[in-house]
């Protein structure tokens, strides 16, 4: 299980659930930016990272190694506005659910100067697919339900691929629990029951904190986690062996049974966690 490498015949699927609730307006530590700005920056960085990894040669298109989706929950930027869940891509990809990587690479909403993710005092010119936003409450159940629909269809069409990876970036408590007759636990169970021949879908969580507190990354035990840590721990999938290896290579002390959960993380850690969580098995050489 969890051994399939990505290729164009067996692409992977990465879905990011992005909290756009009102509390995302809070400043993120000493960065000077809000949680919303930092999270959008990290999402744009990981999307660029995936495009770069699939860039292999001059005169060759970005390879279709992944189908990628970003769904926001909280403030809606399209349609009637208000609170809800929607695909978060802007520009030419607005309204699209899962997008093949070559199409993603070709259609950012803008290429502009963005601050460095690691808080270095430099700006870099980079493509942008998702803008920061915040407002309203935190309809996480609905986000899991909406993403689950896309993930279900994708898994049915890609039975031999590495299972879908869903990464939830949030700063708050669920506010729509239960939703449509099911609790957040039940929605996540439905989501992670979706499977390919290589295993069940993986659901990872990243919790952002506006205050500077110790980071907890890939815990194997919920003991000591402040709220809502224990709940997110229970919802999070165990890291499969290839990701444990990735995390250890990145310097994390990952123990048996470690969950795909990062708690109270800063901006650079958020990106590193996203990189670990989106790096599926690959033959490095």
């Amino acid at each position: 299980m969890y051994r399939q490498s990505v290729s164009r015949s067996t692409p992977g699927c990465v879905v990011i659930l992005l909290d756009r609730s009102d509390s995302m307006k809070l400043p993120w530590g000493k960065s000077g930016d809000s949680l919303a700005v930092g999270a959008a920056l990290a999402v744009n960085n990981i999307l660029l990272d995936m495009c770069v990894k699939a860039t292999t040669e001059v005169n060759a298109p970005v390879r279709h190694y992944f189908d990628v989706g970003v769904f926001s929950y909280g403030a809606r930027l399209t349609g009637p506005g208000g609170e809800g869940v929607e695909p978060a891509f802007g520009g030419p990809l607005a309204g699209r659910g899962l997008v093949p990587l070559p199409e993603l690479a070709a259609h950012p909403m803008a290429v502009r100067q963005e601050p460095s993710i690691d808080l270095m005092p430099v700006n870099v010119k980079m493509p942008v697919w998702v803008d920061p936003a915040h407002g309203y409450r935190t309809p996480m159940c609905q986000a899991v339900a909406v993403a689950g629909g896309y993930v279900f269809d994708w898994a049915a069409a890609h039975p031999d691929s590495f299972p879908p990876i869903i990464i939830n970036i949030t700063d708050g408590m669920v506010t729509d629990n239960p939703y449509d007759g099911a609790t957040i636990q039940e929605w996540v169970e439905r989501l992670t029951a979706i499977e390919t021949r290589d295993g069940r879908a993986l659901f990872f969580n990243v919790f952002l904190s506006p205050v500077e507190v110790p980071e907890i990354v890939f815990p194997s035990d919920p003991g000591g986690l402040p709220l809502p840590g224990p709940d997110l721990f229970a919802l999070s999938s165990v890291l499969p062996a290839p990701m444990v290896e990735n995390a250890r290579v990145d310097g994390y002390d990952v123990r048996a049974g470690a969950k795909g959960l990062a708690f109270n993380v800063g901006r650079s850690t958020l990106l590193r966690v996203l990189q670990v969580g989106t790096r599926v098995p690959d033959r490095s050489a």
Partner: peptide, 12 residues
């Protein structure tokens, strides 16, 4: 030789 799958210009 075995070029890195995620590299750039690995075949060359």
């Amino acid at each position: 030789a075995d070029g890195a799958t995620q590299g750039f210009g690995s075949t060359r």
